[in-house]
Simulated assay, not measured.
Amino acid sequence: MGRAAVLGAGSWGTAFAKVLADAGTDVTLWARRTEVAEAISTDHVNRFYLDGVDLPSTLKATSDYREALDGASVVVLAVPSQSLRENLAVWAPSIGADATMLSLAKGIESGTLMRMSEVIVEVTGADPSRVAVLSGPNLAKEIAVGQPAATVIACTDSDRALELQKACATGYFRPYTNSDVVGCEIGGACKNVIALACGMASGIGLGENTSASIITRGLAEMIRLGVALGANPATLAGLAGVGDLVATCSSPLSRNRTFGAHLGAGGDMASAQAATNGQVAEGVKSCTSVRALALRHGVEMPLTDAVHRVCHEGMSVREAVGLLLGRRVKPE
């Protein structure tokens, strides 16, 4: 296939650009900061967001988005969900008329309650068939060092999905295709919120039984919301649902879990943000938009509601746990 541009040189954007380069794809990575782009191009490292990982010499980087987008047939959007619209409005005029746009962002936009693919379509005016999403158990550091992982690329255009699959398939990174864009996006957004809850529980000293319960009931919330929006439940039982949920809820590499753990240990929002090295824990903002989306569709999501209350309404983690345990018992 043609050239790929990855817009966003955070940990996951950089790791995915490396995957593309390792797969033999001609790829240029755009970094907002000139010093990040120069370090990648000259020293083949991104010590700012993915320290300790050697990047391929074939991976090019630039701080000029027009240069990155010039001639790109695939545009990978690797910025946080709540800043996607603002960035995309700037980039859109430089994106090719038939370029495939692949979203790595996992969240629901605040205010509009749009999924990322919906934001892309609205901002660019592109046909939805040109928009794909990627989701799965994809912890950036593990993938960047070549540990085996799988993912899902969802697109309503099967030919575009297959092209993307070929562009990023390597010996360590195995992409599967799917047509369920809604399911993949709901899984990606909800798992970050549930990971915050797992981190909070760990932070106050609760163990694996609690974590397993949160993951399982979180999955139930995810499926309820996904089905209400038209997703296939099987998608959420796969890599983009259970797979991503388990990885994000269990790993110390997960920013959302780390953020939640600091809150559970008594930290405030500022110290929790510092614990993630200033990188975005998507679930902090998405918990509010996911909660609002659930209310719009009449879907009950008590774990999501509890996380929102802790992050945005001043409720303590222990109060939230008590609230959840105090709910009436009922059939599973």
Rank of each mutant, 00 (worst) to 15 (best):
L7E: 13
S11I: 09
S11E: 05
F16W: 12
F16Y: 14
F16L: 14
A17K: 10
K18E: 08
V19T: 06
A21N: 09
D22Y: 07
T25E: 09
D26P: 11
R32F: 15
R33E: 15
T34E: 15
I40T: 08
D43I: 10
D43H: 13
H44I: 05
V45L: 12
R47L: 10
R47N: 15
Y49R: 09
G52F: 04
G52E: 08
L55S: 08
S57E: 14
T62D: 02
S63F: 09
A72D: 05
L77R: 11
A78D: 02
P80F: 06
L84P: 07
N87V: 04
L88C: 08
I95Q: 01
G96A: 09
L102N: 09
K106R: 09
I108Q: 06
I108H: 08
T112R: 11
M114N: 15
S117R: 10
V119W: 05
G125M: 04
D127V: 06
V131I: 11
L134M: 15
G136E: 12
N138T: 02
N138L: 02
L139M: 14
I143D: 07
Q147M: 11
A150V: 03
A154Q: 05
D157V: 01
L164H: 09
Q165L: 11
K166A: 15
G171N: 08
Y172W: 13
Y172M: 09
N192P: 03
V193N: 02
L196M: 03
T210Q: 02
I214A: 05
I215R: 12
M222C: 01
I223S: 06
L225A: 12
G226R: 00
L229V: 04
A231Q: 04
L236A: 13
A237Y: 12
G238L: 04
V242N: 00
T248N: 02
P252L: 01
L253W: 02
L253G: 00
S254H: 01
N256S: 00
N256G: 00
F259R: 08
G260I: 00
A261C: 05
L263G: 06
G264A: 10
G266M: 01
G267Q: 02
G267P: 03
D268M: 07
A272M: 00
A272V: 06
T276Q: 00
T276S: 03
Q279Y: 07
V280T: 02
K285W: 14
R291M: 13
L293W: 12
A294C: 14
H297I: 11
H297V: 13
G298Q: 07
V299H: 08
E300M: 10
L303N: 05
D305F: 14
R309S: 13
V310S: 00
C311D: 02
C311R: 03
G314V: 02
A320T: 04
V321R: 10
L324G: 06
L325N: 14
G326P: 12
G326Y: 11
K330P: 05
E332T: 10
